[in-house]
């Protein structure tokens, strides 16, 4: 009896900040996993940060003028230039520090964008930022379509998903017919020190990756899959579960690339079939067995390729 009593005392949670940097009162939909991802990212970085955010879901829900949900210095910029503004902030701080106008304190610069602001519209600014080598963490919160304007396809929308601009019909029964853009591989191809994928369902992994990115001397890119109950047509209470399924089916594997070395962070013993992940999602409702099998084959192929990449030892 005494044992069970002991178990039921709230113990302080380890390595987890109790501060909230995005305050309650934001207008995110019920069960939004994207704002949960942002909450964990901010907790991992701490108060000494400046954020530049591209237009997108996270911007419109958090800053209905003249209100703001942010408890940190935050600037809203247009869709295409979050990375460019973050580079400017970083360079500006460097210059001010050199002139002795501000105290020499470590400030983390973060640029954040949705999948539209990263993979489509802000792509060249991101590539430029990475190439110039600014010490900025770029976080992409990927909900796989332009959700804030009403679910339009982006280049990050996965194959087979219906959106309002890639509907299923007679000519294209599969919905979106092209594969999702592999942003982490593109970022890694720039030869940057750190890039990774994450998911708020695995929050310790997410926070660890953000802290790693913070320590790195140079640009880093974190791609976070965040379930959107409204756009994916799932019930709001299952947002966390679908994140888990995406990882366990191999649709969105968790891995990191550190100085050219690939590493898998979560390797299920056996991948679940992708149909487990598709089941219950309204955006995949039209998929028949043939399409599901085609997608399954490609997912398995990509997974095997990734496992191979991760088992290679980097050349020294």
């Amino acid at each position: 009896m005494a044992d069970t009593e002991k178990k039921k005392v709230i113990k302080p949670i380890k390595n987890f900040s109790m501060e909230e940097y995005i305050s309650s009162g934001h207008r995110a939909c019920q069960g939004c996993a994207e704002v949960l991802a942002v909450r964990h990212v901010l907790k991992a970085i701490g108060p000494d940060m400046i954020m530049a955010m591209a237009t997108g879901c996270m911007e419109i829900i958090s800053s209905p003028y003249p209100l703001t949900s942010w408890n940190i210095p935050w600037i809203h910029v247009a869709f295409e230039n979050a990375a460019a503004v973050a580079s400017g902030v970083e360079s500006g701080l460097k210059a001010l520090r050199r002139k002795g106008r501000i105290p020499n304190k470590d400030v983390t610069i973060v640029a954040m964008g949705g999948d539209g602001g990263t993979t489509d519209i802000g792509f060249q600014a991101l590539s430029g930022m990475i190439e110039r080598g600014h010490k900025v963490i770029y976080v992409c919160v990927d909900n796989e379509a332009y959700m804030n304007t009403g679910i339009q396809r982006s280049s990050s929308t996965p194959i087979g998903a219906t959106t309002t601009t890639s509907p299923t019909g007679k000519l294209e029964p599969e919905g979106k017919s092209t594969w999702k853009k592999d942003m982490v591989a593109i970022a890694a191809a720039h030869g940057i020190p750190y890039t990774a994928t994450a998911c708020p369902t695995f929050f310790t992994d997410l926070q660890k990756k953000i802290q790693k990115a913070k320590e790195v001397n140079g640009p880093s890119y974190i791609h976070i899959l965040s379930v959107c109950p409204t756009g994916w047509r799932v019930p709001p209470n299952k947002a966390i579960e679908y994140g888990q399924l995406a990882v366990d089916t191999g649709v969105f594997p968790l891995y990191e690339v550190e100085n050219g070395a690939w590493k898998l962070n979560r390797k299920p013993k056996e991948l679940k079939p992708v149909s487990d992940y598709f089941k219950g999602q309204g955006r995949y409702r039209h998929l028949d067995e043939r399409f599901t099998q085609q997608i399954q084959d490609k997912v398995t192929e990509r997974w095997n390729k990734l496992v191979e990449l991760c088992s290679e030892k980097p050349e020294k």
Binding site: S23, S24, G25, H26, R27, S62, S63, P64, Y65, P66, L67, T68, S69, W70, N71, I72
Partner: peptide, 10 residues
């Protein structure tokens, strides 16, 4: 916006 986190009035 000069006051951080004032969206909590909503």
């Amino acid at each position: 916006i000069t006051e951080p986190g004032n969206a909590s009035c909503y």
